[in-house]
Design a protein around this nucleic acid. Structure first.
Length: 938
RNA sequence: GCGGGUAUGGUGGAAUUGGUAUACACGCUAGACUUAGGAUCUAGUAUCUUUACAGAUAUGGGGGUUCAAGUCCCUUUACCCGCACCA
């Protein structure tokens, strides 16, 4: 009887065994070296796991099993980032509470993950929407609220220290990470009301309140995320979106800019990743130049520029929407009375990307020419550097140029380079020099920079300055499904709640109110009883002892910024992590995740870690020692075209390239695509929740409605995900694991394509049959030959090196090559096959565990030691030299390893074949690189 | 727009890090075997010239450095990713 490779039976059996014996959660020995490997934790969406997710998990598992076999204490934990928008939107559509949806989704994810056979430490599982977790997120927020950043000690410190200092000396001796410019003494401070004091303190707190703009969509009655918007219209419904200012919490991450930048130096990240971080932080050296207002000489605009040598080309100044000059108090200074209505109308109707702006009616004075320069308000020119105003040189900057053309502003060229015709590129080139710039004329960029900077500082027209692009991060969302912010308001002063967790209240509807405020404004029980320290009914609010609670919730990056720490001690009720455990695990040794997190998540987590370090809650400065970004899995999206004005969908076959560009593109689920990109309209229309445009018409062609396909990131938001479940059923987890690794290098993005998975399945069957001769498991107990040992040791070496280099695809070929060789020489020896099985268990744990068992082993292969590598067995005494002529390979010739160069030269020059290829020409030069190559130049 | 990445046969990819380009698979073409399978085995498979031997040309395009370039430098094209409320 033939024993076939029955993956279902094998995988089932060992998954049960691992779970029953708790194999991956064995007790740790703290005297052993640690290795903390981590995957970026998934968001449990309703779609379930897609085939792109496991790539990182499998790679981490291979690495974890390898490290384990090398004797490390390994943890490879997993959890769920479960607060967020997709779940909330699903709740809005269905009315089912996000908590329930999250529970269902997590269950499904877990089942899918368990089927992969990954050595995850499930007992360390965490979940950011669990109250035992977000209690600590809230606790950390309070810490930030109660902190300020001391620029002298370069760390966060308690706000109490700051208040004490204010009481003693005011802010005269304080150098803080703060935008607050006014100095005051102790007396002034003491005279302030509590409200005024708090207003000042808000400029210092690391978690603070400020007005920031959001994407407001009145028709949907909600604030939208950037990715919910396309061409200034909401993707859902195609309604216009406006910028709206709201009072929100922010985190003063900008105070940490310098440390975030410096910390990168020591980290083992790829250069690209570092570059992304560096450009996100965006440190720029430049100068602040003062421009005085024409009407009020006392008011100076401080304008930062990195290119002061273009000062004579400045023809207008922009106040960005975020500018503090446009606050109610200041606006009169900057906007002419007659222009008030126009400006207001503009601000209210801003759609983010159009070239729009409005003249304020006011001018500033150019510090050198003393000419009048018009002052505009606009959101078009990007305020990358948190500036209150921007000087615009339209001749040499593309957006300013477009703006100048639109508003018919003068364009003055002030740079010249005979080699470069594109004005916009001039300031990047050292050989450009100044023209039309009075005393700067003829100087190159470097000279003119130094000259003008010196001049400006001497005359007090400005001062040298360093600017960062890194903005303070918004820390509030007008959403329901997030961590409540533990704050209540007493006489409009924010006060903290120490009794944690502050639980997310129950509500009926997850929609925001008409003003775009959070759904929590509609919660029935969302007021704070100050005396009894508990949540009470909103109707009881009396502004004395029953006070309103903060209704915004935390953003999704809150919980994900410190989750790796919780894995060290996931069930601790008394603290977020026990000091002893934290000092052992310290940081993540290997972090695997998508490149799309290279900026956002990484900056936030690094900031958060540094903040905790300032209070010695953690002992390391950086959370992630080494990061690998797995490549994106690309899917084949389906896109249909929508004309919102006419309220119709148009089949792609009726549209040409130009028409398509104008229409709104909507991703639809690839489940509804039939052959030849035809859309199954019946199924699409019958969707219960997914489709919101049921009142729109479908324009067909020949009775058919077709879509376009696009290769892009596989993502639930693009409806192009492929689910791995059917692959488990058809081929098994081991095949899937190997196949996903076989697709290519981990860090490269790849298009998902199932067609060659058969090859991997065949390989596993071949390997299985190799162990079973005539239906019986067979193993040869004889001592292996030198040749056999050579095959084994070459393999061990190659696989080890490749895993250490994070090349997870190459070992698979090595397994195949080795198997082919073993079949050829009919080697079934235990001393060869046992080590191979151990190596193979990194990739195919179920398969290998079964073979291991058949080899008579009692203990799980998870605990097996990495095979001994005998370097002597792979040493050769001959090397087969490739002989090339003018770099072109012709034939091979063997020489002894220790053969002298001149002997090789003598022999090769007199070789028959050499003479044949030389064709009677004389060689000019013979290059011999020992044990590498011979090249004969003629 | 700004920032980053990728490009090797019909397909996924390999190349000891500057040293034999296309390993290993998939697919395809023959053939064998058969308890007819989504099985297994054998042979072939970059392109062009050639019956063959052999030769020439090929790592997105163009140029350069070198005895030697897929790999280093310059330039260019195409595609993908990120840009702060998706996670």
């Amino acid at each position: 009887m033939n024993i076939k490779y029955n993956f279902k039976k094998i995988e089932n059996k060992w998954q049960k065994y691992w779970k029953y014996k708790n194999i991956f959660n064995k007790k740790l020995f703290y005297n052993k070296k640690k290795f903390f490997i981590l995957n970026m934790f998934p968001y449990p969406s309703g779609e379930g796991l897609h085939v792109g997710h496991p790539i990182g998990y499998i790679a981490s598992d291979i690495y974890a099993r390898y490290k384990k076999s090398k004797g490390y204490n390994v943890i490879n934990p997993i959890g769920f980032d479960s607060f967020g928008l997709p779940t909330e939107q699903y709740s809005i559509k269905t009315g089912i509470h996000p908590k329930i949806i999250t529970k269902i989704n997590i269950k499904r994810y877990k089942l899918q993950l368990l089927r992969l056979g990954i050595s995850f430490n499930w007992e360390r599982e965490i979940n950011t929407s669990d109250k035992s977790y977000y209690k600590w997120t809230q606790w950390m927020f309070i810490k930030m609220f109660n902190s300020w950043y001391d620029n002298i000690l370069k760390k966060a410190r308690s706000i109490k220290i700051l208040i004490n200092e204010f009481n003693r000396n005011g802010n005269i001796n304080i150098n803080a990470g703060s935008p607050y410019k006014t100095t005051f003494n102790a007396n002034t401070w003491k005279k302030c009301t509590n409200f005024e004091k708090e207003k000042i303190l808000q400029n210092y707190r690391i978690a603070f309140l400020s007005k920031r703009s959001v994407n407001w969509c009145p028709e949907l009655g909600t604030v939208l995320a950037n990715d919910e918007i396309q061409n200034n219209l909401s993707k859902r419904g195609g309604y216009p979106v406006y910028k709206k200012k709201m009072l929100q919490w922010s985190i003063r991450i900008s105070a940490y800019s310098e440390r975030l930048l410096n910390g990168l130096k020591k980290l083992n990240f790829t250069e690209n990743l570092k570059n992304s971080q560096i450009s996100w932080i965006g440190k720029k050296y430049g100068i602040k130049i003062f421009f005085t207002l024409e009407k009020n000489k006392n008011i100076k605009l401080e304008i930062f520029t990195t290119k002061p040598y273009t000062i004579f080309g400045v023809t207008f100044i922009i106040l960005p929407l975020e500018s503090s000059f446009l606050k109610r108090k200041n606006i009169k200074n900057f906007v002419d009375k007659r222009k008030f209505n126009e400006v207001e109308k503009y601000i209210l109707n801003i759609k983010s990307k159009n070239i729009l702006g409005v003249f304020t009616g006011n001018y500033v004075i150019h510090p050198f020419t003393r000419k009048k320069i018009p002052l505009f308000i606009s959101s078009y020119i990007k305020d990358d550097y948190n500036l209150n105003s921007i000087m615009c040189v339209p001749a040499h900057e593309i957006n300013s140029y477009k703006f100048a053309i639109k508003f018919k502003i003068k364009i003055l060229e002030v740079l010249y380079n005979k080699n470069i015709k594109n004005n916009i590129k001039l300031f990047n080139n050292e050989n450009s020099f100044c023209i039309n710039s009075s005393f700067l004329n003829g100087l190159n960029l470097k000279k003119s920079y130094n000259f003008i900077v010196n001049l400006i500082t001497k005359n007090n027209f400005g001062k040298k300055s360093i600017s960062f692009k890194l903005k303070d991060a918004v820390f509030a969302r007008q959403r329901y499904w997030g961590e409540p912010i533990p704050i209540f308001f007493e006489k409009k002063i924010p006060k903290i709640i120490n009794k944690l967790p502050l639980l997310l209240p129950y509500i009926d509807t997850y929609l925001p109110n008409n003003n775009g405020n959070s759904p929590l404004t509609q919660a029935k029980f969302w007021a704070w009883d100050k005396k009894n320290k508990k949540i009470v009914s909103t109707s009881l609010i009396n502004y004395k002892n029953i006070l309103p609670l903060e209704t915004n919730t935390m953003p999704s990056w809150a919980g994900s910024s410190w989750y790796y720490l919780r894995y060290m001690d996931p069930n601790n009720k008394y603290f977020f992590v026990k000091k002893k455990k934290e000092t052992y695990w310290k940081y993540v040794d290997l972090y695997i995740g998508g490149i799309e997190h290279a900026t956002g998540h990484l900056i936030y987590a690094r900031f958060w870690h540094k903040f905790l370090k300032d209070y010695n809650f953690v002992s390391s400065e950086e959370p992630f020692k080494k990061i690998i970004n797995q490549g994106m899995i690309l899917g084949n999206s389906a896109i249909i075209y929508c004309n919102n004005k006419k309220k119709e969908y148009i089949t792609s076959s009726n549209l040409d390239f130009k028409e398509k560009k104008k229409l709104q593109k909507i991703n639809i689920d690839i489940k509804y695509i039939k052959d030849k990109n035809e859309v199954d309209l019946e199924k699409l229309k019958n969707l219960r929740f997914g489709f919101v445009y049921n009142n729109y018409k479908f324009i067909l062609n020949n009775g058919k409605f077709t879509c376009d396909r696009k290769i892009e990131k596989m993502s639930k938001s693009k409806y192009n995900v492929v689910n791995p479940d059917f692959i488990y059923d058809k081929y098994g987890a081991d095949t899937l694991r190997i196949y996903e690794m076989f697709l290519g290098p981990l860090e490269k993005s790849k298009i998902w394509d199932i067609k060659s998975i058969n090859g991997i399945y065949n390989f596993l069957k071949k390997f299985w049959n190799f162990f079973h001769i005539k239906g019986k498991f067979y193993i040869d107990e004889k001592t292996p030959s030198i040749e056999e040992l050579k095959i084994l040791n070459k393999m061990i070496n190659k696989i080890k090196n490749n895993i250490l280099d994070y090349n997870f695809n190459i070992p698979i070929s090595e397994f195949m090559i080795t198997l082919n060789k073993l079949i050829e020489i009919k080697c079934y020896k235990r001393k060869i096959l046992e080590p191979i099985t151990i190596l193979f268990s990194f990739y195919a744990p179920h398969f290998s565990e079964e073979i291991w068992y058949k080899l008579g082993k009692k203990k799980s292969i998870y605990f097996a030691k990495f095979p001994y590598f005998d370097i002597n067995s792979i040493l050769e005494d001959e090397f087969n030299y490739p002989v090339t002529f003018n770099g072109k390979f012709r034939f091979k010739k063997k020489f002894k390893i220790n053969e002298k160069i001149n002997m090789i030269e003598y022999k090769i020059i007199n070789n028959k074949k050499t003479l044949f290829y030389l064709k009677e020409k004389k060689p000019k030069k013979i290059i011999i690189i020992l044990n590498k190559i011979i090249n004969i130049v003629f």
